[in-house]
């Protein structure tokens, strides 16, 4: 059984790569979307709302198929890896936007008022008051998203990206015993996710501030 691990590990690297890119893309999309939904108006805000509605209202698999199989009809041809990253990123961005939006709304506006009262510009408020709190409040939900994305990245299998799961399937088709292969795949997933969860927990502990939680309203 151990002999198949190196072969599977190459797939694991692809899974991790897909997840990392998807998560990062989700972050870059999620924060501006959350800001637009909370503070924006008119067309930009409508775009943000549309984006989150579409990508949270349809299955990830469907989004992947549209990007990989559907876009070529519109003249956009992407390789599998890029398509998978794009689908994961767009999907994650919509969910991350909701986590950030929830966190934003839990920060009371009074703090911003006080910051402006001492002469801070809107940008300074964002940077020195809003952002430090936002990142801490959103961390638990965000860690969750990181764990989920590693699991959901497995959909890449359906467009023949040679990720961990795909490689497992390959082995089975070359007549390795399915139960051996898939249990090993499972063990690898557990190892990856366990490490991720542990790292996130350490980060949470380090940046934790007494009284700063998602349930900020309950603190008084």
């Amino acid at each position: 059984m151990l002999g198949i691990v190196p072969f599977l590990l190459r797939g694991a690297l692809i899974s991790i790569g897909l997840s990392a890119v998807g998560l990062a893309m989700g972050l870059l999309l999620g924060i501006p979307t959350a800001l637009l939904k909370t503070y924006g108006r008119g067309i930009p805000r409508a775009v943000a709302v549309l984006y989150t509605e579409i990508f949270r209202g349809t299955p990830l698999l469907l989004q992947l198929f549209i990007i990989y199989f559907g876009l070529p009809d519109a003249g956009i041809v992407l390789d599998r890896f890029t398509a998978a990253c794009l689908a994961l990123g767009l999907n994650s961005g919509a969910y991350q936007a909701e986590y950030f939006r929830g966190a934003l709304q839990s920060i009371d506006a009074g703090q911003i008022t006080a910051a402006r009262a001492i002469g801070m510009t809107q940008t300074q408020c964002m940077r020195h008051v809003l952002l430090p709190q936002l990142l801490r409040i959103v961390l638990p939900a965000w860690s969750n998203e990181a764990v989920y994305i590693v699991k959901y990245a497995a959909v890449a299998f359906t467009i023949a990206v040679p990720d961990l799961l795909a490689r497992g399937k390959m082995l089975v088709s070359w007549h390795w015993r399915p139960i051996e292969v898939f249990l090993t795949v499972a063990a690898l997933y557990i190892a990856i996710l366990g490490t991720l969860a542990h790292v996130m927990e350490r980060v949470e502990k380090r940046v934790r501030i007494p009284g700063l939680l998602l349930e900020a309203g309950r603190e008084r």
């Binding site: 009371d108 703090q111 006080a114 910051a115 009262a117 700063l212 900020a216």
Partner: peptide
């Protein structure tokens, strides 16, 4: 101009 608010509005972080 210094301002003090009813709800304190301290920076929680």
């Amino acid at each position: 101009i210094g301002m003090v608010f009813q709800d304190f509005n301290l920076f929680k972080h």
